[in-house]
Amino acid sequence: MPVISFDAVTKVYPLPAGDVVALAGIDLAIEEGEFVLIMGPSGSGKSTLLNVMGSLDVPTSGEVTIAGKRISRMDDDELTLMRRDHIGFIFQQFNLIPLLSVVENVEYPLILKGRRDVSRERAEEVLAAVGITESHFTHKPGELSGGQQQRVAIARALINDPDFLLCDEPTGNLDSKTGTAIMELLGRMNREEGKTVIMVTHDPRMTEYADRTIRLVDGRLA
C-alpha cells in the first residue's frame, strides 16, 4: 500500500477576482522508501501539493490517503495528530523555535506525544545521527550555522519516526557545498534507514539522489 495516494485531487482558492486553481486533478501514489522530487515553475502548485500531503491543508475535491487514513473529513485535531505522528517537515528557512535550545527543539515533537521519559535521550541519539556534536546541544538555534540548523531541523523531523519526510526547498537557503551535504544526509536517511522522502526543489542536480521526479505545470502533472 502506498504511503500517500491522491485520487483526482483539486485545490481551489476562491478569490474575489476569480477562483485560483492550485491543483487541477492530481492522481499519484508514493510508495514506501521512495525518494521523490517535485519540480515545476513558480506558482505551479508545488507547495500546495506538499501542504496537502502534509495534512496542513485539505483538498477541495478528490481523496487523499495518508498512512492508510483518508484526510478529507478529518477535523483540525485529527489533522494535527496526523502531522505529529506520521509526517516530518523540513523547511527552506529551517524554522527552529528560537526560545528552545538545539536539543529541546529536537525533543519537542516527542514531548507533544507525552514521551518526556525518553525524549532527551532520543533527541541526543538523533542529533548525533545527523552530525551535530554534543557541544552544540545546549546552544540556541541562532548560534548555529545554516547547515547546522538544517541538520537540527532534520533531526526534529525524524524524532517521531515519521512515515515520510516533506521538504520544501531544504537547500534553498544554503550555499552549494552545505546544500550538497544536506542532500547527502537526506539521501543516506533514504538509503540506509529506508525513509520515504518527498522534496520540492529547483536544483536539477538533485535528480541524482531521487528515484523519480514529478513535474507540475499549472496544477497538473506534466
Binding site: 505529529r84 505522528d85 523555535i97 515533537p109
Partner: peptide, 16 residues
Amino acid sequence: IKEIGVLRSIGTRRSE
C-alpha cells in the same frame, strides 16, 4: 505568528 505556524505544522494542537 511564524513560530505559531511552525509549532502547528509539527503537530501542536490548538488547545496546546
